[in-house]
């Protein structure tokens, strides 16, 4: 069987933006949302798709789901053209738009699933089995008969994810599935996605701002910026390339001069609290041990790098190198 599920070759998407310039004059401006994408995704892969806002993430997802027609290039999902075979392909994919629920606001959660059963023509046995599984793993049992408007954001997201999986899609597109969720809901969603991917072999493409999502779910991460894939590989490599740093937030018993600790640098100090940055690739354990030995600590926590910082640094680095080369050359 062909192991490639998603093929993207030289795909671009440009929009014409009309702006009013003066009373009657209008200017046309071509915006390249996606400027030449090339990648493939194998069946059963779980890929994190990240990038700053406006980088072209959602445009890519819209083209993969057949909502938008690419301007140029070739795009195949399960061997089919998503735009031409949209309705047929829809049967084989699940989509969750993070900030836009597809659940019925005024009706009990169960009714939205009943509609999905009819829309996707899910056989009764399959439907019952999949619903039971989702209800159990996402802990939806007590929520099934509650109107969706009364659910919390985390509960609603769990409900949305279940709705996208009842028809056993081969591929699941998730747009910011953990945005705004509390810690417990985030963990439950991640565990569920990992389990679905492992048990069902469901291919997952998720966009996110939360590096923890990727750390816990994806062996592969693609970074997109200005409409191009600028990094494609493991998370380690991304941290190396982006020189990303984690931060130790140290709460001391009393105010002290700046802590000097090998392998870290002080980035901020405020009263009894100090922030120490260290390379994301290094382990926090020895640093914590040494701090605990040298100081009286009230509290200590480790902050993961922000995705924007990693990417910004990656670019800052690239641009600086380019600038240096230009000056020398």
């Amino acid at each position: 069987m062909d192991q490639t599920l998603i093929e993207v070759e030289g795909v671009t998407k440009s929009f014409v933006v009309r702006r009013r310039a003066g009373r009657l004059r209008r200017t046309r401006e071509v915006v390249n949302a996606v400027a030449g994408l090339d990648f493939t995704v194998r069946r059963g892969e779980m890929v994190g798709y990240i990038g700053p806002n406006g980088a072209g993430k959602s445009t890519t997802v819209k083209m993969l789901t057949g909502i938008l027609l690419p301007s140029t290039g070739r795009l195949r999902v399960a061997g089919a053209d998503p735009v031409r075979d949209r309705v047929r392909l829809a049967q084989r994919m699940g989509v969750v738009f993070g900030q836009r629920t597809t659940l019925w606001w005024d009706l009990p959660l169960r009714d939205s699933y009943e509609l999905a059963r009819r829309i996707y023509r899910i056989p009764a046995g399959t439907y019952a089995r999949n619903l039971d599984r989702c209800v159990e793993l996402l802990e939806l049992g007590p929520l099934l008969d509650v109107p969706v408007r009364q659910l919390s954001l985390g509960q609603r997201m769990r409900g949305d994810i279940a709705a996208a999986l009842l028809h056993e899609p081969e591929v699941l597109y998730l747009d910011e599935p953990t945005i705004g969720l509390d810690v417990v809901s985030k963990r439950r969603v991640r565990e569920f996605l990992a389990q679905t991917n492992a048990e069902r072999g469901t291919t997952v493409l998720l966009t996110t701002h939360d590096l923890t999502d990727i750390e816990q779910l994806c062996s592969r991460v693609m970074v997109i910026d200005h409409g191009r894939v600028v990094y494609d590989g493991g998370l380690d490599g991304l941290h190396r390339q982006g020189r990303s740093e984690r931060t130790l937030v140290v709460d001391l018993e009393r105010e002290l001069p700046p802590i000097e600790l090998h392998g870290t640098r002080l980035v901020r100090r405020e009263g009894t609290r100090q922030w120490l940055a260290f390379p994301a690739s290094a382990s926090a354990a020895p640093l914590v041990a040494e701090l605990a030995g040298r100081y009286e600590l009230r509290d200590l926590s480790v902050r993961e790098p922000e995705i924007e910082d990693v990417i910004a640094r990656m670019y800052g680095e690239a641009e600086r190198t380019a600038a240096t080369v230009a000056r020398i050359g």
């Binding site: 789901t65 909502i67 949209r86 049967q91 989509v95 836009r100 829309i119 996707y120 023509r121």
Partner: peptide, 13 residues
Amino acid sequence: EGSVDTVLVRPVP
């Protein structure tokens, strides 16, 4: 709102 998108990803016209 962009909610036409949610309609287009379902297997119904």
